[in-house]
Design a protein around this nucleic acid. Sequence first.
DNA 1: AAACCACCCAACCGCTTCGAC
DNA 2: AGTCGAAGCGGTTGGGTGGTT
Length: 363
Amino acid sequence: MGRAPCCDKANVKKGPWAPEEDATLKAYIEEHGTGGNWIALPQKIGLKRCGKSCRLRWLNYLRPNIKHGGFSDEEDRIICSLYVSIGSRWSIIAAQLPGRTDNDIKNYWNTRLKKKLLGKQRKDQIYRRKGDLLTKKARSPSEIPSSIVVSGNEYTNNSQDPYMPEVPVMPPMPYTNQDPCFVSDHTSLRKLLIKLGGKFADDGSVNQSINMVSHFPSENTLTNLQASSQNDENRFIACSTPASSSSMQLNSQYNILPIQEGQIGTLPSAFEEMYYSTNTQQKLDGSEFLYGDMYEINTSGSNSVITCGDSIDWGEMSSLISTTTTNDVMNLSNFRRPLRQGVSIQDRAYDDINSEFVDMKKL
DNA sequence: AAACCACCCAACCGCTTCGAC
DNA sequence: AGTCGAAGCGGTTGGGTGGTT
């Protein structure tokens, strides 16, 4: 037996709202408020609408100070940052953008922002592919920063085929299993990758991509990054060299999709390209949406440093991401599901991981 | 001018979570 | 602790619109 409908479907009007309906609803709410009961409201004011429909109309359209369209660059940045950090929690993202509704942001992301970012990625990728055909053979392994090349393990580049991508692995970040925020980032990235590159989701390459891309700052590393960036005029993110690349894999404690050996080298082309560029100190084309428009990889001692340009400033991005991937993200993530008594954040993280894993398997 | 196509966005649907009882 | 109705939320749909052929 299914769930009882929230209203009498046969007697409610559907479709676009008429100006008179808008006026009626707006006038009533402005004078009396919603009364805490959306279901009863339409009957009260004589509207043949479902309560849910009234609520949506008010929240997304009639409410005062609603802004429509005309998203600024700053808003774009915030949306991208938060999407990377927390995924499609549109209501939370909307809360950071005054006057914007979750529906508006969701539509904007789905119809424009995502395409804009992917389109740019693709364009750059095609452009660079052509260039690579000419330059690939000239590039020697010694040109690859030693801090980035992970030698002596399964992530070494494919030496059998000179045309395979070289060293498709990012310098892993220090990872601690005790850091639930990292897990949160990891799962967000997993979702992001699947959403953006969904067609690769079932060939194992997403795992690799996650392994690759998930070297974004975790809570601890971001704290370090912020500290280090304060000592540098340039805003940057430092990627520490790993003790072991396998430490990045969330496979033992959290039982999350182990990365299998032998799959490296079959990365989705987009991410392959992204990483490929990393190694050659070019822009990480296609991943600008994670960092900003302009940045490059430099090396310093045992660290790799991503320096941002001025179009989108990593300082801003990192501050956004760092503040949202640390405790705030946990708080934001808990916004919908506040911690119940006796449930620790760690327990929640475990629960989230398990549910994410289940969701992944469904895909 | 008409047909077709792609895009946008308001609105809907169904699931999850909350909170009162 | 369990139940149930309401609210909140994210994914999806479909009508409108503008551009192209």
